[in-house]
């Protein structure tokens, strides 16, 4: 089972504490969102896991192997994308990916195929033989994402992966992350985009001023920390536009439902109490009502609410 573990991980720059005694263990196939304001220590943590910086104290372990004691072994099954790297401008995407594939030991007989697949996954087929120097920031970021996927790693460390991408590119990256979850990967992803985290992540870790504030499932975190601390919010999508015959009153009367608000003509926000168990029964109750529900998900605004409750200020 893939795992990431920070053991009392600390990073100081002189007197400035960038990361303070972070202890966190993530195991299994899932996507964990890593949230926090600017300067909170997110990128510092990811850099410690990829040997870009050295810890002042503590250890960063990947699959139980210390990154700083045995980098090659620790990072063998780990792909990463940290801070939008630049690629040699004279290289084409195929050459840049070929270099990474060779370094990572992708077998020669499948190398070409893997490179083509990675390029196709980030929709850069038409640019694969063009020089990277002419690419936009978003195009380079796509190649960087392809590079992190190339060796089909068990673990992916992504530092704001949708940075620089247009809305379509962002959506495509989210789809890639979702598809990786289905392929038994562990994804640890920092982001400022809370709807993105709500959409793709199963768990969230929040950090501020170098300290871990919370690490739990998305539902538990939003239940504990959003609004009054006892309620959660789900958003449901409808196949048809709402009209006067829509049974809002019936939904409001379901046990545990606190309020039902119309977001737009096809979406409702339902606030309820009772945690995950209630969320489960709410889903089945709504499905039984046959109201044309086509989606049901924890609200991004609930996560925002949680974020704002836990993180009081930013740098």
């Amino acid at each position: 089972m893939p795992s990431l573990e920070a053991v009392n991980l600390t990073k100081n720059y002189g007197k400035f504490v960038a990361l303070s005694n972070l202890s966190l263990k993530i195991e299994g196939s899932k996507c964990v969102g890593f949230l926090g304001p600017n300067g909170a220590g997110k990128t510092t943590t990811l850099k410690l896991f990829t040997d870009m910086i050295r810890p002042s104290q503590g250890k960063a372990l990947i699959n139980g192997i210390s990154v700083h004691e045995n980098k090659r072994l620790a990072l063998e099954h780990c792909g990463s994308l940290i801070e939008s790297p630049e690629i040699y401008p004279s290289f084409t995407p195929k050459e840049a990916l070929s270099m990474i594939a060779e370094i990572r030991g992708v077998p020669h007989d499948v190398r070409e195929k893997r490179i083509e697949e990675a390029i196709a996954e980030v929709k850069m087929e038409d640019w694969k033989d063009k020089k990277v120097g002419k690419f936009s920031k978003g195009m380079k970021q796509r190649i960087n994402i392809a590079s992190s996927l190339l060796s089909e790693p068990d673990i992916l460390l992504l530092d704001e992966p949708t940075t620089g991408l247009d809305p379509r590119g962002m959506s495509e990256v989210r789809d890639i992350v979702k598809s990786l979850k289905k392929r038994n990967r562990l994804i640890f992803m920092s982001s400022h985009l809370l709807p993105e985290v709500s959409d793709v992540c199963d768990e969230v870790a929040m950090i501020d001023h170098g300290k871990l504030l919370v690490y739990d499932t998305l539902s538990n975190v939003t239940t504990k920390f959003s609004g009054d601390g006892n309620s959660s919010i789900v958003e449901i999508g409808l196949a048809r536009a709402l009209d006067d015959s829509f049974p809002i009153g019936s939904i409001s009367s379901i046990t545990g439902v606190v309020s039902v608000d119309k977001m737009d003509s096809r979406n409702l926000r339902i606030k309820f109490s009772g945690g995950l168990e209630k969320q489960e029964t709410l889903l089945s109750d709504l499905a039984a009502m046959k109201i044309g529900m086509i989606s049901f998900r924890a609200s991004g605004s609930a996560l925002e609410d949680t974020y704002l409750n836990l993180i009081k200020d930013t740098l």
């Binding site: 870009m52 980098k71 090659r72 990072l75 994308l81 940290i82 790297p85």
Partner: peptide, 15 residues
């Protein structure tokens, strides 16, 4: 300076 190192260093390769 050019951040090309970020493309390489995060891989399983010794500096």
């Amino acid at each position: 300076q050019n951040k090309t190192g970020y493309f390489l260093v995060g891989n399983p390769i010794r500096r």
